[in-house]
């Protein structure tokens, strides 16, 4: 209980730090959960590869932000691409590679990651997901779990098992005599996550495609009768999810670390948030994400890091229990 005392009587200003850190963490988790809620709600596919899509987005932003010659270890300046020797000009390989793939700031890599992941999502849908939508629960779980393994191994082959990070290079601000610090990048992440959420909600509400998605979610057969190409709606939804994951991944590469096998933690978190918030409740997902982030930080501080994740899952059980009791009151026996 020494930790409680520390928090409430000795250094209450730490509460601000904990709440802020929790919100920053929660915003990014909410983003990935948001995509999952979409896919789950519309297509009834429980995507176990959610975390891998996130990590993939992170790798895209990271790869765009690095110097390729440095990464693959080409010695400076004295190496020439062999076919350039036949040209009248001579270009050192390093300059050539830097010209071909300039190092882009990871914040600018975020939209690129979204676009690439949207395309990737479309391909994955056509290859795998479209075949499992109308199958039972276990088929879709198995298929997406297999997909997760394949993505992990491909990332491992392409980039190696080392832990990678993208540096934003942004400033860190401190308040209250250094007791509270806010890294600009985390604040930007919170804002970006907010903007993305607003854009997606607006899109779902007012655009034709958004309306079609909602119609399909409510009743795919009726939607088809009304002339909605549900196959296209499904493909778009899954791709949109991949794009949102890509954005979350790009942000994660700037605030935490990425590694080919770290996707699972993000998948689990997304499932917890969606389950707690309830399907089809997009504002609920955001609130649940932020709330769980803050709760996680408080439990990490007070109970220790070992119980940090336990709290998240414990809260989930609590929410489900409460909801069960609430619903049982409304249930009426059929007479």
């Amino acid at each position: 209980m020494a930790n409680l005392e520390l928090l409430f009587s000795i250094a209450p200003v730490l509460n601000i730090q904990l709440v802020l850190s929790g919100l920053f963490v929660g915003a990014i988790f909410a983003l990935a959960a948001y995509g999952l809620a979409l896919v789950w709600g519309v297509m009834n596919v429980k995507n176990l590869a959610q975390g891998e899509l996130v990590i993939m987005g992170g790798y895209i932003a990271w790869w765009l932000s690095i110097d390729v010659p440095v990464w693959i270890g080409i010695p400076a300046m004295d190496f020439r691409l062999f076919w350039i020797d036949f040209l009248p000009i001579s270009v050192p390989a390093v300059a050539f590679l830097e010209f071909m793939k300039p190092a882009i700031h990871p914040i600018l890599g975020l939209p690129v990651a979204m676009v690439v992941m949207f395309g990737f999502g479309w391909v994955i849908f056509k290859l795998i997901i479209c075949r499992v939508i109308d199958k039972d629960l276990f088929t879709s779980l198995l298929a997406t779990f297999g997909l997760a393994l394949v993505i992990q191994q491909l990332l491992n082959l392409a980039f190696g098992p080392e832990v990678q990070i993208a540096e934003s290079g942004f400033a860190i601000r401190s308040f209250f005599g250094g007791m509270v610090t806010v890294a600009d990048i985390k604040f930007i992440c919170l804002v970006l996550a907010g903007i993305l959420a607003v854009v997606v909600v607006t899109f779902m509400k007012y655009s034709r495609m958004g309306q079609a998605i909602r119609a399909t979610a409510q009743d795919p057969r009726a939607a088809r009768v009304m002339g909605i190409d549900t196959e296209r709606v499904y493909a778009f939804t899954f791709s949109l999810n991949a794009a949102i994951c890509g954005a979350a991944g790009a942000l994660i590469s700037m605030v935490w670390v990425i590694q080919p096998f770290y996707g699972m933690a993000h998948s689990i978190r997304a499932f917890v948030i969606v389950t707690a918030a309830g399907l089809g409740n997009l504002p609920g997902v955001i609130i649940a994400g932020l709330g769980l982030g803050v709760a996680e930080f408080y439990s990490g501080f007070i109970l220790g890091a070992v119980l940090q994740q336990f709290t998240v899952v414990g809260l989930l059980v609590l929410v489900l229990g409460v909801r069960q009791i609430q619903q049982s009151r409304h249930r009426q026996p059929v007479r």
């Binding site: 520390l6 904990l18 770290y262 699972m264 689990i268 930080f297 220790g304 940090q308």
Partner: peptide
């Protein structure tokens, strides 16, 4: 603090260190 294997953030622990 013992950090769980898939914990991606250790700031809760570090905030305690700071205090």
């Amino acid at each position: 603090d013992k950090l769980p294997r898939d914990l991606s953030d250790m700031s809760a622990t570090l905030i305690k260190v700071k205090a």
